[in-house]
Amino acid sequence: MEVTLGQVLALLGAAMAVFLPGVGSAKGVGMVGEAAAGVVAEDPNKFSQTLILQALPGTQGIYGLLTGFVVMQKIGLLGGNLLPLTTYEGFLVFAACLPISVVGLLSAIAQARAAAAGVGIVAKKPEEVAKGITYAAMVETYAVLSLLASILMLFGLRFS
């Protein structure tokens, strides 16, 4: 099989969309987990509430995987016959992967900071956990928007 530069670029885009937000989410979930473990070490009853907060920065990784998957489907990788993309087409796919890759990475970490602060709320006023969750979810908006941008770009691309 002849491999084109376009295909390489498209796969690079997919890989980037998976690993950058993935790294961000891993770091983010880890950060909140650390803070949550601190709370639970003193007060084991707070497990379920802190777990929800910990899950929040994990979505960016999912969004990234999702984008990567859409790319794979788009370029026929999953069907088994990879489309012969031109270099420009490859760049198009790569460009479409950029929003979720970059925003996913950074927003996961920013969200983790907000969620870790939310863990502090749980430590003191467990009944106010919803407010902590809402603060963290505000950050997620930008990951959702960039996911939307990436996916709409990808859906819009048509390869012969």
């Binding site: 908006t141 959702v144 996911l147 939307l148 996916i151």
Partner: peptide, 11 residues
Amino acid sequence: SYSRLLALGLA
């Protein structure tokens, strides 16, 4: 902001 309705649905 309501575009999240589509985005999360797609996800």
